[in-house]
Amino acid sequence: MNLLSKSGSSEQEKSQFFSEIVRTYQERIYWHIRQMVLVHDDANDVLQNTFLKAWKGLDTFRGDAQISTWLYRIATNETLTFLAQKRMRNTLSIDETEDVLFNAMKADSYFDGDEAQKKLQEAILTLPEKQRLVFNMRFYQEMPYEQMSEILETSVGALKASYHHARKKVEDFLKKE
């Protein structure tokens, strides 16, 4: 069934339905993005792009997947694209990107963590991008593996293994002086 048949077909009904989607999911989607890009202004930009993509795709979205899964997928793609563009714009290697993100996070006026929290973020940044995504979704959002599996289109078993490895790496980093 087409999502719009639930929302109504007129422009006004569509806008109203979209507005409900934004108000319902914006917070969850924001934190999903922010945890990856770390800086508030960047998260705000990616969140805007995510909902603009969702608005443009609303006519064609079929209710096969849940709205939340659909939005998380768009947000994940937008976030990874944003990070790739940032790397390309500044011709950075992956290691340099970690440093740039970490320094930007420390300088961000909306970072309010202590030294231990800074070290945890530094540890998380050492993970490969996809593993970082898995770690954040499980550790911070406490998302069930089944939902993560739908969003990332990866098997539950692979996600469990990925989270286990990620957690081990983070713990090892934190144990370093």
Binding site: S15, F18, S19, V22, R23, Q26, E27, Y30, W31, R34, Q35, L38, H40, N44, L47, Q48, F51, L52, W55, Y110, F111, D112, G113, D114, Q117, K118, L120, Q121, Y140
Partner: peptide, 22 residues
């Protein structure tokens, strides 16, 4: 999460999105 937000961020964001979409 060790992150903060501007005051009324989500209310402002939703209002801004509604305006942009309109």
């Amino acid at each position: 999460r060790p992150f903060a937000l501007p005051e009324n961020y989500f209310d402002d964001f939703a209002a801004q999105m509604e305006k942009t979409v309109a």
